[in-house]
Design a binder for these strands. Structure first.
Lengths: 192, 192
DNA sequence: TTAATTCTGGACAGATCAGTCCGGAATCGC
DNA sequence: GCGATTCCGGACTGATCTGTCCAGAATTAA
């Protein structure tokens, strides 16, 4: 009946994520998006609706993948606490390897704070998921005797989340992999 | 001879800092700046030259004050390590009291990364000053027996800087004062 | 072939942006 | 009062931005 879509929506969204995370929402023009996503103007509006809706879709997808990657690293490790270490080190390796480290989640928080309800809701959802995963991991670490039991688990999870954000900002500011790894190791030390 | 300036340049710059840190460089229009700074269009261009130059001036001033505030807290405390604690807690109290926590320094890093050489240089300068102050403080803490001597001081300083950035992002994302204080306490624990 | 759908490229409108310029009022020293 | 300087409000230009629209080519199924 009809000609099928030629471009891959997921690939195009990945390009949008890269651009938005480098320059923010306001700093990214639609024409720059069209070039990076390699689609025509009409295709963008037909497929994603709007620059804002595209941004929200990019943010949702980035956050989901980001949290999923961390959870994957957590469960892949031999013990609970080494899982946290794995997650940190994998994140650092990925950020440094990318050349221009940037995080759309942190970027969105910095650009909008809580002023944009929809953006804030997306951030809250992934933050909640991440916190939940970290808490179960830390409870397991305590049960395994890897972590001090006098540390409040929700606080520790918040601390790890803040450390991740700090690592991302440091990486974007230009910190090297060695520095970032040292920071991560020090953060883990506080749980023992 | 001439009519003197009516507005206070420092007050106007403070208003610009508030606006830029809430919405970033690209997200802040000149008209919004004029309204917030309560000066006319011509006065802005005569006094600050340019939107970009105004931004750079705001960033410089914000970073200087920010670092100066931390250094002040460091030295005001009875012992070196409690100085670090003071600095963290003072920062948290200030951020939460402001209602809409935001940091122009972190915002600039997120918005520009290392793509803008001038912005990056301003960030590097204050990061260097802060790191130096933290390192001397930590060396003093080690000498006073407050801190473990097997912790690498530059790494610990980088860790504290990253923690500060993490706290700022967490605060802007909506974390409460109690959570932030818990995070700060855990971070300090890793140095002991 | 035909009808339906998607593609590309570019034109277009309306809004907003940064930055310049002008006119007139206000405030100073002389 | 007078000249000098700064103020303000607003008009203005040229560029850029988002979003809409159109024409024609391409590709599919019936």
């Amino acid at each position: 009946m009809a000609r099928p879509k030629e471009f891959d929506g997921e690939v195009a969204l990945a390009a949008a994520i890269a651009l938005f995370s480098q320059h923010g929402f306001e700093g990214t023009s639609t024409e720059a998006l069209l070039r990076a996503m390699k689609i025509s103007r009409q295709s963008l509006y037909d497929t994603f609706g709007d620059k804002r809706q595209l941004y929200l879709a990019a943010l949702r997808r980035y956050n989901e993948e980001n949290v999923a990657g961390i959870v994957r690293a957590l469960t892949a490790a031999p013990t609970p606490l080494t899982g946290v270490e794995y997650a940190f080190m994998a994140f650092i390796a990925k950020a440094v390897a990318s050349g221009h480290p940037s995080c759309l989640g942190v970027s969105a928080v910095c650009e909008f704070g809580r002023a944009d309800a929809e953006v804030a809701a997306i951030g809250d959802a992934s933050a909640h998921t991440l916190a939940h995963a970290l808490e179960t991991q830390l409870i397991a670490a305590q049960a395994a005797g890897e972590m001090a039991t006098d540390v409040d688990v929700p606080t520790a999870a918040a601390f790890l989340g803040a450390t991740l954000a700090g690592l991302k900002v440091s990486a974007r500011a230009g910190a090297g992999a060695d520095t970032l790894r040292g920071v991560a190791r020090l953060a883990l030390k506080s749980l023992k």
